[in-house]
Computed example of a mutant assay.
Amino acid sequence: MKNRLILLLLTVTIFSACSKKVLSPYAATNKIYSEHADSLSQALLAESPAMLSDSLGKPIPSEWVGTVNFNLRKPNYVIIHYTAQDSTGQTLRTFTLVKPQVSAHYVIGKDGKVVHMLNDYMRAWHAGISKWGSISDMNSCSIGIELDNKGNEPFSTAQMNSLLTLLAKLKKDYNIPTANFIGHGDIAPGRKPDPGILFPWELLAKKGFGYYSDIIIVPAPVNFDSATALRLIGYDTRNLPAAIGAFKRHFVQREDSTRLTQFDLDVLFNVYQKY
């Protein structure tokens, strides 16, 4: 009996030790996520009338009547980034600290592992100060995907395979238009370069995620207005050299510069007609 009791105690001890080992290192931040999500859900469930008053301070009559026609706001853009950090683990740590004030919906490692960090319907803090077309708050309408890459290295095959699979799911789930798969550098020219000149945009375009220039390019006309073309694509042209640089990193990918060559103009003429 005594031996059985000792064996039982040893089993419990070993089980407890193993349980501690498999405990997620992000258990604490996952708990914070759940608590924050719960508080947001309470805000969504609030059924309060608008409390308004006129210029004299007199209450304006109001009441709550719930409509039966509604759903969640859905993302309409996907913004692709590189992490510019040493590892997926370092990025996960950054995104689970309060001080950096940055986040993303997904992080994809070099090995192809996909880490989902935020519900797709929630607003991540990945775009920062940015603009695309008439949209100046990209965080509110987009999904942010971070790729484990420093920006000066090729993207691994496993990573790209996972990205393409994820993009296919997002495009189907939210009916995201082909043109709306873009990079951080596109929406923040002059401030951010990612996913960089090495990112395989042509591959994505072949799969239906964003546009790219055709192999056979019709030369741009002599009077071609490059600034207007960039603006019509979506670029913020208030800093025209920065917009040119962002365009070239995405659609030309030969050199990282802010000067338009004749070849660049031809590519721009080809691309802008797709938008």
Score class of each variant (00 low, 15 high):
residue 8 L to R: 01
residue 10 L to M: 12
residue 10 L to G: 10
residue 17 A to S: 14
residue 19 S to F: 10
residue 24 S to C: 04
residue 24 S to L: 03
residue 25 P to K: 13
residue 35 E to V: 08
residue 36 H to D: 12
residue 37 A to H: 04
residue 39 S to G: 01
residue 47 E to K: 15
residue 47 E to A: 10
residue 48 S to L: 14
residue 53 S to G: 02
residue 54 D to A: 04
residue 57 G to M: 07
residue 58 K to D: 12
residue 61 P to Y: 07
residue 61 P to I: 08
residue 63 E to L: 10
residue 64 W to F: 15
residue 64 W to M: 04
residue 64 W to N: 03
residue 74 K to I: 14
residue 75 P to Q: 05
residue 78 V to N: 06
residue 81 H to Y: 15
residue 85 Q to A: 13
residue 86 D to Y: 02
residue 97 L to P: 03
residue 106 Y to E: 02
residue 108 I to G: 01
residue 110 K to H: 01
residue 112 G to Y: 07
residue 113 K to P: 00
residue 115 V to L: 05
residue 116 H to A: 04
residue 116 H to Q: 09
residue 124 A to Y: 02
residue 124 A to I: 09
residue 126 H to F: 14
residue 129 I to Y: 11
residue 134 S to P: 00
residue 135 I to Y: 09
residue 140 S to C: 09
residue 141 C to D: 02
residue 143 I to L: 12
residue 145 I to E: 09
residue 145 I to D: 05
residue 146 E to R: 01
residue 151 G to M: 04
residue 156 S to D: 15
residue 158 A to F: 11
residue 167 L to F: 04
residue 177 P to T: 03
residue 182 I to C: 03
residue 184 H to N: 10
residue 190 G to T: 02
residue 193 P to L: 01
residue 196 G to N: 05
residue 198 L to W: 05
residue 204 L to C: 08
residue 211 Y to V: 13
residue 220 A to K: 03
residue 220 A to V: 10
residue 225 D to C: 10
residue 226 S to P: 01
residue 228 T to R: 12
residue 230 L to M: 11
residue 243 A to G: 06
residue 249 R to V: 09
residue 251 F to A: 05
residue 252 V to W: 01
residue 252 V to I: 14
residue 253 Q to K: 14
residue 260 L to T: 01
residue 267 V to I: 15
residue 271 V to H: 04
residue 272 Y to G: 00
